[in-house]
């Protein structure tokens, strides 16, 4: 019984914490000059923030994946990324 409850608690802990982190602070908006409150502006700020955060990472990720695919096409096999360091070092 206790084990089930504990498992339930550990399973719920993550989503609950995430919800607390994401939602609860919304109650704390105490900006005297923001008469707008809940306008589209706030939603757009959050939306564009997420967009602008993700975009550079997606662009670089896309280029890296494209180059990797191209490397595979040009050189046949993908160059092992560690081959340079793991060549046997001969001791002179």
């Amino acid at each position: 019984m206790g084990a089930v409850r504990r498992r339930l608690r550990t399973r719920l802990a993550g989503p609950l914490l995430a919800a607390a982190v994401l939602v609860a602070p919304g109650r704390a908006l105490a900006c005297a000059v923001c008469a707008a409150g809940e306008t589209n502006n706030r939603a757009e700020f959050i939306l564009t923030t997420a967009f602008m955060t993700a975009l550079p990472l997606l662009l670089v990720g896309g280029v890296v994946l494209y180059l990797r695919a191209r490397a595979r096409r040009v050189h046949g096999a993908p160059p092992s990324p560690t081959s340079a360091l793991e060549e046997p070092r001969r001791v002179a």
Partner: peptide
């Protein structure tokens, strides 16, 4: 970057993240 706007009236949910 938005940690520079904590007192600029940004959404507290954003501030948290």
């Amino acid at each position: 970057w938005a940690h520079h706007q904590f007192v600029a009236g940004i959404d507290p949910r954003m501030a948290h993240i």
